[in-house]
């Protein structure tokens, strides 16, 4: 791998995870905030809210994981190397 390609790959891997974490971070914050509000209003619904929250958090996390998959491909199985 020449140095330009490796530099670009490492930079791109960092950007893929870093930028990919912004959106899901905001989304997870909003979701968690909504869940806390829901529990405060209706403490008896806590179990159900927690289940739904965890499931939706995992969906949002998947978006960052896509970025991570791209980063891993760039670092360990770079197609341009």
């Amino acid at each position: 791998m020449d140095s330009i390609t490796s530099a670009a790959s490492v930079l791109a891997a960092g950007l893929a995870v870093g930028l990919g974490a912004i959106g899901p971070g905001i989304g997870q914050g909003t979701a968690a905030g909504g869940a806390v509000e829901g529990i405060a209003r209706q403490p008896e619904a806590e179990g159900k809210i927690r289940g739904t929250l965890l499931l939706s958090l995992a969906f949002m996390e998947a978006l960052t994981i896509y970025g991570l998959v791209v980063a891993l491909v760039l670092l360990f199985a770079n197609p341009f190397a």
Binding site: A62, I65, Y66, V69
Partner: peptide, 16 residues
């Protein structure tokens, strides 16, 4: 695509 990447990425990320 999303089913497979979600599972693969999460498990590999945990191990990493």
């Amino acid at each position: 695509l999303s089913l497979s990447f979600r599972l693969f990425g999460n498990i590999l990320a945990d191990e990493l």
